[in-house]
């Protein structure tokens, strides 16, 4: 397995065990998918979730002891550890946010989401997911 090569990746398994594609495919082709998605989103307004960078970060950003998100491009974090190992410059985060926002949704939409969540019994944001994960873990 290629897993024996390269840096130890910090992966937050609490968010699920599977990436949007098998890991070795992602390792090789993540930029291909991201680039394809980037042009579709930018120019055509297509905002599917599978290869959305925002979703990558929602899943791959880790939290520190103080329960605050660590930027994915910080040393040792998911994106940076591999890119440092392979000496490939990370350009995404010149512009893109490096961590999820606790209120990734606008307040008004959050209300909408909250109402939706109440009805459909679904969590609203990633931080809620994390809370549930912690509770479940405690059990």
């Amino acid at each position: 397995m290629a897993d024996s090569v390269g840096p130890e990746l910090k992966i937050n398994r609490a968010n699920g065990d599977k990436c949007v594609l098998p890991a070795d495919e992602m390792r090789k082709d993540h930029m291909k998918h991201l680039k394809h998605q980037r042009d579709e989103t930018m120019h055509d307004g297509i905002r599917t979730k599978q290869f959305s960078l925002k979703e990558c970060i929602n899943c791959h950003a880790n939290k520190d002891e103080a329960d605050k998100y660590i930027p994915v491009n910080a040393p040792g974090e998911f994106c940076q550890s591999c890119h440092a190992y392979t000496s490939v410059k990370l350009d995404c985060f010149e512009c893109h946010a490096t961590k999820p926002r606790d209120t990734a949704f606008h307040p008004i939409v959050t209300d909408k989401m909250k109402a939706f969540a109440d009805v459909h019994d679904a969590p609203e944001t990633k931080s809620m997911l994390d809370t549930i994960a912690k509770k479940d873990g405690a059990k």
């Binding site: 989401m113 679904a122 997911l129 994960a133 873990g137």
Partner: peptide, 19 residues
């Protein structure tokens, strides 16, 4: 629990989108 949360997320996005 991971699978359950995955399920939540998937449901949420599907439902949200359809809704």
């Amino acid at each position: 629990s991971e699978q359950k949360i995955d399920q939540y997320r998937r449901d949420f996005f599907t439902k949200a989108t359809t809704a």
